[in-house]
Design a binder for these strands. Structure first.
Length: 374
DNA sequence: ATGAGACCCAACACTCGCCC
DNA sequence: GGGCGAGTGTTGGGTCTCAT
């Protein structure tokens, strides 16, 4: 609230009526004088408090602190980030920001730092964050049934976010025609069902995954989970529903969790609702181990990157698999456990450490040697 | 009804540069 | 050189609109 708002509110609270009316009676002149004095006192008090009040009540620790209003008001978005171009507009915008914060108007804007990568290309809609958060709170019995369905690799997800720069770089080097990550002068990494099995430990045998809308299956799922809304529940609502199951580890729990895995990680759409396409694949919980999930992941990657979809802004497949596959092929000069599925090894710390070593330049990777036969 | 895409928002992570 | 404040970039989750 700015100073003017505070003054207006004070006036309102003090019940300021018509001054003319107040002066109508001589004996009230003194009262009016007192009133004005009180008003001025309030004004000064508010002004002094506004000067000394802290900008945020949050504790200031390192770089984790509240931003000033000018920055908080509107976060940077991909379209805004034209950062390294020294355009007049961006410099003017910088100057405006500084003005808001009371900085010296005549100072030239500081040079912007280099971009480190990010979302200037396709935006990956498959995020491990939601699953990472949800999985943390599962009880051992719930984890047990998921492991029993050979989806334990998803539970082992040790990284809470995608390394943006590297994933953008890898997406540029993925060739869907031959299903390989092709890095010039270094070789190729095969993206096949066996690689998905090695990284994620998902089922790699049996029938093809049916990933399509079936009205009767959707109806049945809605009935099981008591969904009465016409439209699909959002992923957030779906997660809450799983949490509210309160540690239950029956088929309904597994089915709901699997639908989430498909909808937000293995084959996400740009929509943030649970995808009814996944219902057909997960309806038969006991048959999921006889469904070739590994091949499905590979097929989804191919589909997402085929030429006809090249102009899309969002990539709806498991890009994280490409990232882990690449990282796992590098010769890192430090001991990395030889566990499977490999996803359990690659936690956020290790990923960022290796990425740092592999970075050639902002947005460019390939510094480390590869150990796998390219 | 559903998915695709653009845009929005906020929290967090990172880097730079000042100051001691 | 290290701590810290401030600015900037990244990311995940959201809404809305439009096409199918």
């Amino acid at each position: 609230m700015d100073l003017l708002d505070q003054v207006m509110m004070t006036l309102h609270l003090m019940g300021m009526k018509s001054i003319k009316h107040m002066c109508a009676h001589a004996q009230e002149v003194f009262m009016f004088f007192m009133y004005i004095t009180e008003f001025v006192f309030h004004f000064l008090l508010i002004y002094v408090v506004s000067i000394f009040q802290p900008r945020s009540s949050a504790p200031i620790t390192g770089y984790k602190r509240q931003r000033t209003k000018a920055v908080i008001a509107r976060g940077k978005r991909p379209d805004d980030i034209i950062s390294n171009e020294n355009s007049n507009e961006s410099q003017a915008a910088d100057a405006r920001n500084k003005n808001v914060e009371g900085a010296d108007v005549d100072q030239p804007p500081k040079a912007k730092r280099q971009k480190t990568g990010g979302t200037e290309g396709c935006r990956n809609r498959a995020s491990p964050a939601r699953l990472f958060k949800l999985n943390k709170d599962f009880v051992p019995d719930q984890k047990g049934v998921i492991i029993g369905k050979e989806f334990g690799g998803i539970l082992d997800l040790a990284a809470s976010s995608m390394p943006g720069g590297l994933s953008q770089w890898i997406m540029k080097h993925y060739d869907p025609e031959i299903s390989q990550i092709v890095i010039l002068e270094r070789g190729k990494i095969h993206v096949d069902a066996a690689s998905v099995r090695r990284i994620w430990g998902l089922p790699n045998r049996g029938r093809k995954v049916c990933f399509e809308n079936r009205r009767e299956i959707t109806k049945a799922m809605y009935s099981i989970y008591n969904i009465t809304t016409k439209s699909s529940p959002t992923l957030t609502e779906w997660c809450k529903m799983i949490i509210y199951m309160g540690g239950s580890y029956d088929d309904d729990f597994v089915r709901a969790w699997l639908a989430l895995v498909f909808s937000c990680f293995l084959a996400p759409s740009t929509s943030l609702s649970i995808s009814p396409k996944s219902f057909l694949a997960v309806m038969d919980v006991n048959g999921i181990t006889e469904t070739n999930i590994c091949q499905f992941v590979v097929d989804q990657l191919k589909l997402a990157f085929t030429s006809g979809r090249g102009n899309k802004k969002a990539v709806c497949c498991c890009v994280f698999h490409l990232v882990l596959l690449y990282l796992d092929s590098l010769d890192v000069d430090e001991p990395i456990p030889n566990l499977v599925p490999r996803v359990s090894v690659w936690n956020s710390d290790l990923i960022s450490k290796v990425i740092k070593k592999d970075r050639k330049a902002p947005g460019e990777y390939g510094q480390l040697r590869a150990t796998l036969p390219f």
